[in-house]
Amino acid sequence: MLIDWFTVLSQVINFLILVFLLKYFLYGRIISAMNAREQKIASRLHEADNKRAEAEEERELYRKKNTEFNNKREEMLTQAREEAEVNGKELIEKAREEVNAVKKRWHEALQEEKESFLQELRKKAGRQVCAITSRVFSDLSDSHIEQCMINVFLRKLKNINNAELSKMKESMRTSEKAVSVSSAFEISEDAQQEINHEIHTYLMDDRKIVYGTSPDLVCGIELKVGDYVIGWNLNDYVTALEEEVNKTIEEELSG
């Protein structure tokens, strides 16, 4: 008999034991190791995917930021350019205004200087003319220029027309002030009495007459009754001279 049933039974049991032992020692362990490896690889791949996705996101973010930055930079540059342009225009305008102001000041200063120079010239010329005239008078005749001025003044007073006279009287009536006679030189007592006599004769007023000297008059004499003034002054001639000089200066400057 080829089949031994005891052996068959033993082999069945042996085989079943082998199945269970191998299931525990071989298949189970190998499969779990493979599964663990697969999971590890899958998790690594997943991690790599996540990292790639993160990297993509970050790249996108940075690209966006870069674009924003570029846009902002462009915007800021444009703004700065515009501001610079505006500032430049303002500065040019300001500079122009300042230049104009300086020019104006300079013109004013020049004008003032010119005026003061002319004023000074007028005074000096007046004095000089007066001195020369006085010397000429004294050299050529026995009379003095002062006396001549007093004479001219008195003659002007005598020849005053009615309209001027009424104006003078009106002014005298409204004013409480004393009648003053100013001159560039000291008027002698005799001359004062003569002038007093003439004024009292023409104005028929006993009001006190005050005499004084005024360097502004340069060379001349004047009577002041309130707001009314009458007299003779070299200033008129000097003014004509001044006008001439002024004209010459301007011609020189423009030339």
Binding site: L2, I3, D4, W5, T7, V8, L9, S10, Q11, V12, N14, F15, L16
Partner: peptide, 10 residues
């Protein structure tokens, strides 16, 4: 044949 029979029975 006992072994093969045993395996076949299994």
């Amino acid at each position: 044949l006992s072994t093969t029979a045993a395996l076949a029975i299994c």
